[in-house]
Design a binder for these strands. Structure first.
Lengths: 347, 347
DNA sequence: TTTCGAGATGGAATCGTTTCCATGGATGGC
DNA sequence: GCCATCCATGGAAACGATTCCATCTCGAAA
């Protein structure tokens, strides 16, 4: 491999000057720089990042920690991060740390400790105490996307508010028996701000005096998960709600498919609202709160770059707006439903 | 940061011996090794991979090049690769190289050239000529998953055969008007073995003497893509086929949803078969040819490790089996359909 | 008893950069 | 006309590991 020494020789300068010319640091005369650059180009010189990292302490590499790849939000975020880093000339090292797995322990215990990155982007990592200590002890800037927030910079939508607005929307349409589908039972480990969304739903219901009607149906946070839970929930016509808030669009779409299969019309018989604006949301005419993981990712990258390059930048907490997109999966509670509802309410 | 010199001092040995003890190379007395190991553990010593790489030429890092993250096959493959590499203690650097983008050029032109990896896994990268040259000129072992195959090791299912079997299955059920949905028109850039699958469909149709009935409907390879194309295709009852082969399960599921929306019953009025056994396939009772990207990924990792560690290992070409899973999206052509079919066929 | 080789260790060179420090020439203000 | 700056450059010292080579010991084979 051709090293900087050969480039320097070809350009008739010292290694030091060649290095300065190529990295752009320090004083170099314009014509000298040009000479070095052409020499480098002609020789096909590519600097060894290892050698450079060894002395500068910079790896030009960013680590990304996330709990899953194969979920819309994470995959989109990952693509966004990759695109952003590419523009900054940085490499991306992936750490897929699914909660509760041996892989996750290995990642936190050994892999992150190798510090092969200048900074970290943590997507929806809700770290336990040990993991949080590990992260803060790394001494590298961290930006989180999603929810986790321990003094580092963070960007996400307001999940509680999103669920609150989704629920409120249904209430304003006249619905009272509104169920929330998706996520674990109270107290389970949560990602993606599950707990916050549930809290938003609960708050909206309570504010509207609908505490009695609160119903959280536990399900895996996925389309098949939402489908299975909804088949159960909607199958029993007596306890059937008139509206459902999905933990996310994937769950909500599962609900819509379940409804179709059961002959329940959306939105005539059932209103469904999600959160995300998943790439399939439009196809199912799903009313939802839009979030853009790609945009969040780009923002996170930019912030991280400031943390790395800037001398000392204060952590920033950015709340991305979540636009409400009303499609046709939600509608007013019709008279037939409300009479049914009334009858059930007054035994 | 604590370096190997401090560990050596603490253990009362030289740097050389400490290095040998820790890496396991060369002669070290058992008790010396133990002393060094405890010293390293107590000091929390973590070797600088940069320094090690600089002298050994090994990065302990593997690059993964793929065209998308947010597609079931790729996301699953990526998770599988990550899991496999983790077991081998390797890091994973991601290169998301969507065909036809500036990012892709940047990746091939500059990022890969930095050679920050000991080997490469290329997932469904169908490289053009320039890119192929770039890859082979890197001088690093490469294993491909999916289709691309230029003398490197490769693992994939036989896409042509899979499509052939899917089509054959429908023919044996009595179908004649069988359309293929998904992929670009002839000659477009293809990934995921699109062209091979189309070829398999064409072969099966021709062998059965159904050349007249061949119909390739172009669509984006996604669920909404399959949905939109199918709404068009199925909306016109005269030219409506009795069976459809989807480019992959995502497309096939889009077709099923389109059929449901149009009141076409599956499989009574329309048989649908896919390829993949996507995580949603079961939910839609989709008949499909199963492939397991995770398994392919693990296999690819193992092979790559052999290429890296072994002195000189011959490239291997592995065809993974694709099991046929018959669910209830396919059924025999019923009499009503066949009479309709006959009538249409004899004007 | 001598010799040979395997086992165990340390000193020093090495990997390929960046950067510190020293040097010297040009420039500009007084 | 002199001194302080700034610009431009080169030599050499890092960075933190691995590994080559030399040295030494000790037991087994001749």
């Amino acid at each position: 491999m051709v090293g900087i020494a050969e480039v320097a020789r070809a350009a008739g300068v010292s290694k030091a000057t060649a290095s300065r010319a190529l990295t752009g640091r320090g004083y170099v005369a314009d014509d000298t720089r040009a000479r070095v650059e052409t020499a480098a180009a002609e020789l096909g010189y590519i600097a060894s990042t290892n050698a450079a990292s060894l002395v500068t302490g910079r790896t030009q590499n960013i680590g990304v920690v996330l709990p899953h790849v194969n979920r819309w939000f994470f995959a989109e975020a990952l693509e966004g991060i990759q695109a952003g880093l590419l523009e900054h000339g940085r490499d991306l090292t992936l750490y897929d740390a699914e909660p509760g797995t041996a892989s996750r322990s290995a990642i936190f215990d050994t892999f992150l400790g190798r510090k092969r990155f200048d900074g970290l982007i943590a997507v929806c990592i809700e770290p336990d105490e040990r993991e949080a200590v590990r992260l803060s002890t790394l001494g590298k800037p961290i930006v989180s996307i999603g929810c986790y927030d321990i003094g580092t910079s963070a960007v996400s939508i307001d999940d509680a508010d999103a669920a609150w607005r989704a629920t409120k929307h249904l209430i304003e349409l006249g619905h009272r028996r509104i169920a929330f589908v998706g996520g674990e039972a109270d107290g389970g480990p949560s990602t993606l701000g599950d707990a916050r969304r549930i809290a938003g739903y609960l708050a909206a219901m309570q504010e509207a005096g609908l505490s009695e009607d609160i119903l959280h149906v536990v399900s895996e946070v996925s389309m098949p998960g939402g489908y299975a839970a909804s088949v159960d929930l909607l199958g029993d016509s007596r306890r059937r709600p008139t509206a459902i808030v999905g933990m996310c669009d994937e769950v909500a779409i599962g609900t819509i498919i379940a409804a179709r299969r059961l002959g329940i019309h959306v939105p005539a018989d059932l209103s469904v609202v999600g959160i995300d604006d998943h790439e399939h949301a439009d196809m199912f005419a799903l009313t939802t709160l839009q979030q853009k993981p790609r945009d969040q990712a780009r923002l996170a990258v930019d912030i991280l770059m400031h943390h790395i390059d800037g001398d000392h930048v204060e952590p920033r907490r950015i709340w991305e707006p979540a636009r409400f997109i009303v499609r046709s999966s939600t509608g007013p509670l019709d008279s037939r439903q409300s009479s049914l509802d009334r009858r059930a309410a007054t035994p």
